[in-house]
């Protein structure tokens, strides 16, 4: 897909409160530069993520969704991230079957100290999304800004 160079993908980060959100926060306070393309929603645990949230983000026009939780074994609730992994694997595969580029959904583990990894993953996802192009799955360009997305309307 040809894109005008202006186009910047927008992505939604669903980050677990205990590890990944803290990791992202650290990147911020450490003044590490990462693409401004991401809007972040803090969730109590990656295991809380209903695939509904992911599909809703795509419906709202986000070009990609990043889900990040604690590393295996480090989940604050012991097993939330393992359960999330199952659900995400299924979600991604199913969406792929319907015709959605699986790269639009990225899952990763980022600990509270891995601000570097967080920056890396976001940058990498942005790179991927630039390749795939804008998400027009649910009806094109009209993208609500992050404010609207938050209210879920």
């Amino acid at each position: 897909m040809t894109q005008d160079s202006e186009w910047e993908p927008r992505l939604l980060g669903l980050l677990c409160k205990w590890c990944s959100y803290a990791g992202a926060d650290l990147a911020g306070t450490g003044r590490k530069k990462y693409p401004a393309n991401i809007r972040i929603i803090k969730v109590p645990c990656s295991g809380r993520i209903d695939p509904l949230l992911i599909v809703k983000a795509l419906r709202l026009g986000f070009d990609g969704v990043l889900v990040s939780g604690c590393h295996p074994g480090d989940c604050h609730y012991q097993t939330g991230n393992y359960r999330a992994r199952r659900r995400l694997a299924i979600t991604r595969k199913f969406l792929e079957g319907m015709g959605v580029d699986p790269r639009r959904l990225r899952a990763t583990w980022v600990s509270a100290s891995e601000s570097g990894k967080f920056v890396e993953v976001v940058s990498d996802l942005v790179k991927d999304l630039k390749e795939i192009g804008p998400n027009e799955l649910f009806g094109g360009k009209k993208q609500p800004d992050a404010e609207k997305a938050k209210t879920g309307s």
Partner: peptide, 27 residues
């Protein structure tokens, strides 16, 4: 609250409904 999709028969909400339904009944 929140309203996840428009409660009326229109695209793309119809499709979104069925995607989620399938994800929910997986397994």
């Amino acid at each position: 609250e929140p309203q996840w999709l428009a409660p009326m028969p229109q695209e793309p909400d119809n499709l979104m409904f069925q995607i989620i339904r399938n994800l929910h009944v997986s397994g």
